[in-house]
Design a protein around this nucleic acid. Structure first.
Lengths: 347, 347
DNA sequence: CTGAAAGCGCTAACAT
DNA sequence: ATGTTAGCGCTTTCAG
């Protein structure tokens, strides 16, 4: 059993140990305790020792609310992501945490669930909690408003998606280019009627991928048929429903490009259910890798994003802002890579 | 463009609007503003009106640090989970959020990553931020310490796993029973050498499932061979490595039971790589469903947990504690269901 | 029904 | 080098 500080054993709700009590037991003033704990100002070794001992004995933990009320600064970064159940985002969090914790910051996540109201609520929480900085994958390029943060001078870096409603740093891949490349890959495989399952068009990601698909068709000299584009939420169900719609077409597509990983899962499900095989009946390409093994077994060709790296770089950028370093708006575009696998290869 | 409050347009870092400014513009005292905003005390309609108008015009947002420094209460729940990249946990978060937000609470997540130090750090963050309550899936049944929260009277409910180091409410499934059932299912399918891939044995979940597996063997009158049990981290790699070890055995197992979803992915990968087919060469059962489509395509028999329900009930319990309601320690055991699919069926 | 005043726990001037 | 004082923004007695 650990040595229980002060002998006050479990259960009881003890009052919080304050800096004054520490000061009293150490026989110094609160200011000295604070200096020992926070600053590099010189405190005599003797006092320092006594303070540290008191802190240990009493199990003192500074009240971070009081501290940041005073200093107007915290050591917590917020990450507001569009969907916690999407592996793409959680993988990114790894990169965020590694950089943040190396710099002494904690990371808390919030799930906006692609819902503008929830997103707004969490932006307000971040503001109210005076978080040091926020990483955000906005639910909408135009409707999301980061005013609450801007008003308080809390820096924001958007990840995966851009914001048209405000000028902020961002880190993402070139969705347009990647989608165009994927589309051309399908063309190369002989596809002539390529269906596209679009995600939330209100996001730059959703819109960019659609535009890339169209650019691909144009570059290949293929017509852009309206009925071949179906959009839905970035969810499994969205992908399934869209696929069903496309399969119901009198003239079925011979290729299918899906806007994100969750939608791809839905698409695969719908294809299976309908007995449509890939790549034989339809060549399939997705955006984003899934959980390792899913792509492994079903071998789905996909645009793979450097998720960890997005999180890492976004956080480094954010921390530079947090530290007050002034520099012009920074936009980082990372490379996405088309990983060609079985699902799109037609002999 | 939205009406910009006070005409102070974007960009500039405005100082925070305080309750005093609101009071001043409304021509009342700060106390009155506070009353209008927080209490049900009667304030004359006229003043109330003026206050609300001022709040709106100034875009006033209460500083939650100051408030909770004063009231010692927040409206934020913390969820400290063992691994954000595990769909099991993120699915649970859905249930948490639904209940919490219906009750007016926000939810922030932290990723302990099965690491005791990180976990401790986040417990401290939760304490320092005076969170109203915490849901925790402890990294260890014995080494995890929630003292920092207990000291401050912050209630904790553990999810998925129990804590032996403290008496707290918990919500989980009966791992022992579910694992025993799954093992017996494999026996029924004719398996006689059933390999078991164990997770972190330091967690009640990891240990409970192992015990259930052994109980199953015992009930079936099968010997419990030491070499058939391999343990690892609750990760994809852990599952892969453990499977490789089992496949290297001179007398290969004819059945395989894997302790969680991520490990199952690794196991499937290892089996594929080794060219071992299931259910033909080895009958496979996992714990936890994966992302819908993965199980769909690979049709893996698995113990399915009511993730949403675990999150929901745990949060309801937590909120009752938060409200100060006194009741004896509460333990909720939900039902897990063995979903028999192709991977374990031997004709 | 409303305002003045005190104080939550902490840190940063300012004294000494 | 250390202590005293003031005050971050808010809520809550206490007076009136």
């Amino acid at each position: 059993m650990d040595n229980v500080p002060g002998g006050e054993e479990g259960g009881g709700i003890m009052a919080q140990v304050t800096i004054r009590e520490v000061a009293r037991t150490a026989g110094v003033s609160p200011a000295t305790v604070s200096r020992v704990l926070n600053t590099s100002e010189t405190v005599s070794p003797d006092l320092k020792e006594r303070v540290l001992a008191a802190v240990r004995d009493l199990g003192y933990r500074p009240n971070s609310q009081a501290r940041s009320l005073r200093t107007r600064a915290t050591t917590v970064l917020g990450v507001i992501i569009s969907d916690v159940t999407n592996p793409f985002f959680t993988a990114m969090v790894r990169g965020v945490e590694d950089v943040a914790s190396a710099a002494g910051y904690s990371v808390v996540l919030a799930n906006a669930d692609e819902d503008l109201r929830k997103e707004q609520r969490y932006l307000e929480v971040a503001a109210a909690e005076q978080m040091a900085g926020v990483l955000l994958s906005p639910a909408s390029a135009t409707e999301t408003s980061i005013d609450v943060l801007a008003e308080r001078g809390i820096p924001v870096v958007t990840i995966d998606r851009r914001l048209k409603s405000a000028d902020v740093d961002w880190v993402m891949v070139d969705n347009h280019r990647a989608a165009k490349e994927a589309t051309l890959h399908l063309v190369e495989q002989g596809c002539r009627r390529i269906g596209f399952i679009a995600g939330r068009l209100g996001t730059t990601t959703g819109a960019g991928r659609l535009a890339g698909y169209r650019a691909g068709l144009r570059a290949a000299g293929l017509p852009s048929a309206r009925e071949l584009v179906v959009s839905g939420e970035f969810r499994i169900d969205g992908g399934r429903e869209a696929t069903e719609r496309l399969l119901a077409l009198p003239d079925r597509p011979d290729g299918l490009f899906v806007s994100n990983n969750l939608m791809t899962i839905g698409a695969v499900d719908a294809l299976d259910t309908a007995g449509v095989r890939f790549p034989d009946d339809i060549a399939l390409v997705g955006f984003d890798d899934m959980m390792p093994a899913l792509s492994l077994r079903s071998q789905i060709t996909a645009v793979s994003q450097p998720t960890y790296e997005i999180g890492r770089q976004a956080t480094e950028l954010l921390l530079r802002r947090v530290s007050g370093e002034p520099f012009p708006e920074r936009h980082i575009t990372l490379n996405a890579e088309l990983k060609v696998r079985e699902s799109s290869i037609r002999a």
